[in-house]
Nucleic acid binder design. Structure first.
Lengths: 186, 186
DNA sequence: CGCCCCATGTAAGACGTTACATGATTGA
DNA sequence: TCAATCATGTAACGTCTTACATGGGGCG
């Protein structure tokens, strides 16, 4: 079986939350800050058909409602399995370096798809991966300091700061989940 | 004339700093935190040839040094013009939403390619674009708070925090440039 | 009737990934 | 001589972007 594109995972996650048509999904992408995963029909409809061909989602044509034919997709058991498997992948250094988008997407979907314990797991593995990563970047900063122009150095500092802020966020998010899981519901 | 891919701009920026061969560029990508712009020969060599076909770079074969033939590329005047034009593009909201990578790349190259005033310009336009963007995200947070699971809300909060940290960084970077430009050199 | 929104799609083209191929040189 | 490194490339494949096509329905 072929693998699933980033857009494919975004679609799986959204369909796990609610069955929806291609048009609905497009609107969700366009309205929320998920435009990054493409909001064009030329990407979404083919992606949906790929997922259907892989047996991860199934579309049922909904007609007779007066409107034009509309195909509503929902996750299959296999699709839910793939989604869970993807969410539970361990988080390594490369996941941090290659943009946080996919990691955050996994985290965002984790609670509904698996449960709060899975969300907590993701946060903890992010936290442990972040420390060494920040240290590496700081070493690189010292390395380029003599040879790089100010703007190059500042750009790297910007990256370091953003990972530090991410680290703070993980701490905050972990404490929220631990309170929620230990104590009562909010 | 066709437009230039992200990888193309990364190559132009690196070649403006120093002439280099495809192999050199690959090593730079692999060693620094620029792996995001692909480190595979199947991407770099075709990209270089596209740039050459557009007249933005020119490669000179360097032979007789004992090693195997090596093609060293350098920027043409036209290439430098394109690079400057790209760096000077105004920064809008979409640039922030669609990942900071390209913006930071433009900033990192700005000082060598144009000068510190251009770097300062970029920082200032980032600063003015960031305020409204953060406010938008905060509005969206209030909107989804009742309907979204904790993990979805936290993911959005993470994005907001990262933009806030970016805003702090712009202030810091602006002050550095202003000192450098007003006062003496560091 | 004309226009805009719903809802789905297709076709062409550009780009990157993966994997493989090639050949020359250096060092063990 | 064998392996590793230097240095360049190619071919297949998948995916996204852009732009266009289609047709029903509501509305002025």
């Amino acid at each position: 079986m072929r693998n699933i594109s980033p857009l494919g995972y975004a679609l799986l996650g959204l369909l796990q939350q609610n069955p929806a048509s291609g048009y609905d999904l497009r609107k969700i992408f366009a309205s929320t800050s998920m435009k990054t995963y493409s909001d064009s029909p030329g990407a979404i409809y083919p992606a949906l058909r790929r997922l259907e061909k892989q047996g991860l989602i199934r579309g049922t044509i909904e007609e007779g409602n007066g409107l034009r034919r509309r195909q509503v997709f929902h996750l299959t058991a296999k699709g839910l399995g793939e989604l869970k498997k993807w969410i539970r992948l361990p988080i390594g250094r490369d996941d941090l370096a290659s943009g946080l988008k996919m990691v955050m997407l996994r985290f965002a979907f984790s609670e509904r798809a698996i449960g709060p314990f899975a969300s907590l797991e993701i946060l903890k593995s992010m936290e442990t991966a972040l420390g060494p990563h920040v240290q590496d970047l700081e070493a690189k900063l010292e390395e380029i300091r003599p040879v790089s122009p100010t703007s190059g150095r500042l750009a790297l500092e910007c990256g370091i700061r953003s990972y530090e802020s991410l680290l703070q966020w993980t701490g905050y998010a972990i404490s929220i989940y631990e309170n929620q899981l230990k104590g009562g519901r909010s």
